[in-house]
């Protein structure tokens, strides 16, 4: 198979620091929300924030944003499976 030299994307340090700060802020929000009584929605909010944090880590720290599309396909496949698993589990958790 022919190999072609690909130009690697170099992410500036400032981006890493901004993303790190964003992760810290989102973690603080998660902790704060856990202290507020939102009932069933507490978990949904926590999962939503966790999803945003995962997207940041995967795209920036793991460089997926700048990589070949096949890796995005793999990740979307795994992410969709995880989402379906959560969704189906909630049919038990929410209606028990």
């Amino acid at each position: 198979m022919a190999h072609t030299e690909k130009k690697h994307h170099i992410t500036p340090y400032s981006t890493y620091i901004i993303v790190w700060l964003a992760l810290v802020i989102f973690t603080s929000i998660t902790v704060t929300v856990a202290g507020i009584s939102l009932g069933t929605y507490t978990l949904l909010v926590a999962l939503f924030i966790a999803a945003i944090k995962s997207a940041l880590v995967i795209n920036i720290f793991m460089h997926i944003k700048f990589d070949e599309s096949i890796f995005k396909v793999f990740l979307i496949l795994s992410g969709t499976t995880l989402f379906v698993i959560f969704l189906l589990t909630f049919f038990d958790f929410l209606y028990r």
Binding site: L88, Y95, R96
Partner: peptide, 9 residues
Amino acid sequence: GMSDTARWI
């Protein structure tokens, strides 16, 4: 003992 909704789904 899981929910009936989950059972039929």
